[in-house]
Amino acid sequence: MTADVPGRTGLSLSDLAMVPVRLAMSFIDAPLRWVQKTFGLGGMATFFLLPNMLIFGIFVLLPFFINFAYSMTGGTALFLPDRSFVGTDQYARLFDCANYLDPNSCVEDTFWTAVGNTGWFVVLQVTLMIGFSLVTALILNRDLRARSFWRAVFFFPVLLSPVVVGLIWKWILQRQGLLNFGLFSFGFEPHVWLNDRTWSFAATVGVSIWAHMGFYTLIILAGLQAIPKDLYEAAEMDGTRTSRVFLRITLPLLMPNLLVVIVLVLIRAVQIFDEVYVLTGGGPGTSTLYLTQYIYETGFATQLRNPGLAAAASILMGVVLVVLTLLQLGLSRPSEKKGSRK
């Protein structure tokens, strides 16, 4: 800027700041020209994606294939070459059931109990998480006093480690915890929340929502702020009802963000483990035993571990996740196309 002022010469601050960038560019210019010449302009994209794909391949795809190989083996040995090939026996063992709705009729009853618990957890947690996050984001998007403070308040639990979250709520909910102390102080009868099957299940859903809601609220909030204000002004001038504004403007324009949130919440809900493991340990009985804990216990925590069975269970869990994600993406496509035609 200053260099353009007549009578003044020399480098401006921004020019100086650009020096290292230009230097770096001059270093990579020659190799990049070579890459472009060798692979062509179209091949450049592949070239730049290669490091990322390599990391993805090593840390995601390769373990997936190793896991699949494990699921085809039996015995308690840890190393793949030491394990005997059993084909699909582990899957057959998991599916050996007289009635899939009655875990007690299955050979691996604990697996089906975990599947059932996870299913209920996903339905409840995903629905409530989306609902609470949406409502919270709508409130935080308004002109509130100390809005930044409230946003921080809702986001704060996201910063906590899952173990800390589990411990905090354990101290609140246990027999001599804060909640019972409060109830007792007000003359109510204390209750052993974590010994009660229904309450402990509800606690895992509630705690998980409390711990992660802030993150999803933030994503929805970003979506809300990206909606052009003039649409709302036009609706106001037309005297449109608030509920109609929400259904016809806010919700459709928020759909891409909501879709991301739904997919993330769903994946996270199916994978639930850490805070629940600390809070209830899967109890009472197996009422809060979820799929990931089943896999962990089968593969690592028991004295005679069964990595093959644990691997088969995790492959099935992966398949369910992929199907659910594809289903959601498929369902979202028509609305996206409809939106783009408009």
């Binding site: 052993v192 109890g283 809060t288 216990e297």
Partner: peptide, 10 residues
């Protein structure tokens, strides 16, 4: 009851 129902598995 607290000790025995406080976890799943072993």
């Amino acid at each position: 009851k607290d000790v025995w129902v406080s976890a799943a598995g072993s």
